[in-house]
Design a protein around this nucleic acid. Structure first.
Lengths: 336, 336
DNA sequence: CTGTTAGCGCGTTCAC
DNA sequence: GTGAACGCGCTAACAG
């Protein structure tokens, strides 16, 4: 006994029946195949419209071998920089008719690995934002992800890379501080196992060997506001006249904590951030920082993915140069 | 002439061959079907492990009729509140083994509609965050989305709703301001077609009829920092002693602009925000605002979706109460 | 130009 | 307890 027709979506067979044609003709008409008689195509389109028919994307994905979806693996959805990358990526992908699957690895290295692999199975490629993953793990993971795009890491053999030049940014920051007259600095390190941390370290080392009398003490903090707050006492005890925070969040936490202790910024202490998150301009004083074009990085990452998806060779590495943004949190050291 | 075996992923047939069993047995063993001989199951697992086999999720989706993925439609990925909702949702969904597709409608009403429908086709349900969509459009859209969850809107007939009580929050804010002695307020309205705007308006109206001598002028602004900045002159011209900004972003823009004009906040003007975004505590002065538990809303939205997905009846409406957070941007009016 | 046939990779009835 | 056959909904070869 036939079941009553379910009220579920119309399938290609329903359209074929209504239009009085075969399944293939419906398929062809719906996909704009030019070998279909215009009159028939019209009839099919009309029938499809009447039934509200749209081809089932899952079935198409199975037969076509592509899902029109890419995965983005991100270490922390709470970080404004990753949010901006996601935003730029999402909008660019949408413009090209692709969907975006987000996966927040919550800074968990194992999770990162697993998420990348599992999401890859239901997508056409993955954009991997994994700053702390060991280079070796990454190299081993990437082939199974292909096509992939790597964000904010050095050149990879198997996947294009998009990112900012953190070394150049750090150089600008140090130069800015030294040209103001600072000689005793603190670098508040964040993710010490990250690639961008090492780029910063190298830039600092280069600046030291270039600038007479420059001393930079490295203190370990973290990557968020709280870690900046927590570092305040150590920073003040260091005797430095300026501090280079790992990023804007750390800088904000530090700024807030030292201000609460009655320290004048930038009068008694200069502070710099990194990234130029949207709120960096609204602290008090507004933060001097280095602007990383995160939205553009996201868009470029999509471009690199889209190129691979369409069989075009992407740029193997796309590096954007951040820009120093001098605001109110830096000034010459007080003449003690 | 047979093609050389492609280096693509192992399929269920490869596992069956290696284990010396049929396709069905592999399928059953991989899905933990208890009717499989333990010894065989072992062999299959071993073969699968050796080949690195994982069932193709797309094929499973087609046959099972579920994708283990949900879509989240959001008006603006740049807004910290939506980011927090997404974060809470994403983490909760991941914990239950689901994936999340994000769609940024960029405040475009047509796009919102289209995105919801198309993403629904490749997912098992959609969480819709569409504060400005007309009630009628929504009612018409929802059935085709089922199962769906609606965020920050009044009760819907066909889908559970999760959100915050913006009216209660606004009441707290107005009461806070009046108890400080303010009588001439400005409400800087944002998305005037949004549901939460109307809830705020009603709360304000109620406060006016309850509080002797209270006047509230409504000015139209927007929902972002720039619109707060742009409203500064109008706010100052109004003669109000306190302003209720639509959200924290507007409040921050306004705060920044009036401070730049030499106005003392809260001495000469009190300002309140709404949402309590992560940076509200770091403005100068820190923002008095009403904390909307956005991450929890995201988690609750997932819970409502998960319930529907597992055949459990979800709470038809889940309303969270925001909390007033008094910080430094409000004070008694100056005794002019 | 159109219809018929054969899969895409898997889960799941049905017989054995 | 296990295998063979069918079908999820669609597209792409192949005939006609």
């Amino acid at each position: 006994m036939p079941m009553a027709r379910e009220s579920s979506r119309a399938g290609i067979a329903d359209v074929a029946r209504l239009a009085g044609v075969s399944l293939s003709t419906v398929s062809r008409a719906m996909n704009g195949n030019p070998t279909v008689d215009p009159a028939l195509a019209q009839r099919v389109q009309a029938a499809a419209a009447e039934l509200g028919y749209t081809a089932n994307p899952v079935a198409r994905s199975l037969v076509l071998g592509r899902t029109q979806t890419v995965a983005v693996v991100i270490p922390d959805l709470e970080n404004p920089t990753f949010q901006a990358i996601l935003r730029g990526l999402s909008r660019a992908a949408t413009a090209d008719g692709y969907h975006v699957l987000v996966a927040d690895s919550r800074e968990d290295l194992d999770e990162e690995h697993a998420l990348a692999r599992t999401t890859r199975l239901r997508t056409d490629g993955v954009i991997l934002c994994a700053p702390r993953m060991a280079e070796q793990d990454l190299a081993q993971l990437l082939p199974s992800l292909s096509p992939a795009v790597v964000i904010n890491r050095g050149p990879q053999g198997t996947a294009p890379t998009v990112g900012a030049d953190y070394g150049a940014g750090m150089r600008d920051i140090v130069d800015h501080l030294t040209s103001l007259g600072h000689r005793r600095l603190v670098y508040l390190a964040g993710a010490t196992r990250s690639v961008t941390h090492r780029a910063r370290q190298q830039a600092i080392a280069a600046a030291i060997s270039r600038t007479a009398g420059l001393e930079v003490e490295e203190l370990t903090a973290g990557v968020d506001i709280d870690s900046g707050t927590a570092a305040a006492d150590r920073v003040l005890a260091s005797g430095a006249t300026a501090v280079i925070a790992y990023n804007d969040l750390v800088a904000m936490g530090l700024l807030s904590a030292v201000t609460a202790r009655g320290i004048d910024v930038p009068g008694a202490l200069s502070i710099t951030g990194f990234d130029d998150i949207p709120f960096a301009a609204y602290t008090s004083p507004p933060l001097t920082t280095d602007a990383v074009p995160a939205v553009e990085i996201g868009a470029a990452a999509w471009a690199a993915m889209h190129a691979q998806l369409t069989g075009v060779a992407p740029r193997s590495t796309h590096t954007m140069t951040p820009t120093l943004v001098v605001r109110g949190s830096t000034a010459p050291p007080s003449a003690t």
